[in-house]
Amino acid sequence: MSTNGYSDWAVDLAEVGPIYPFQGYEVLMVIIGVIFWIGWHRIQFVREAEHLEKARHTGDEEKVKAQLERY
């Protein structure tokens, strides 16, 4: 048993195509990839909104002025 369908390399490479593991599950892998990508955006949106809301209420006027001067 081999996850990529080859148990030895004594083959004619002219006859060989894909050699990655779990061939036949490409669509499932793409779905997992899309979930990973969309999930990342979801987490990022939520976290950034929380961060910005927190930042709105923590600004010290003197420190903000100092930041403006700092450019």
Binding site: M1, S2, T3, N4, Y6, S7, D8, W9, A10, P21
Partner: peptide
């Protein structure tokens, strides 16, 4: 785990 059973080498007699 992901490459379980895939030949480690083209030479005969090597463990997978």
């Amino acid at each position: 785990f992901v490459l379980w059973g895939v030949p480690s080498s083209p030479y005969e007699g090597y463990a997978a």
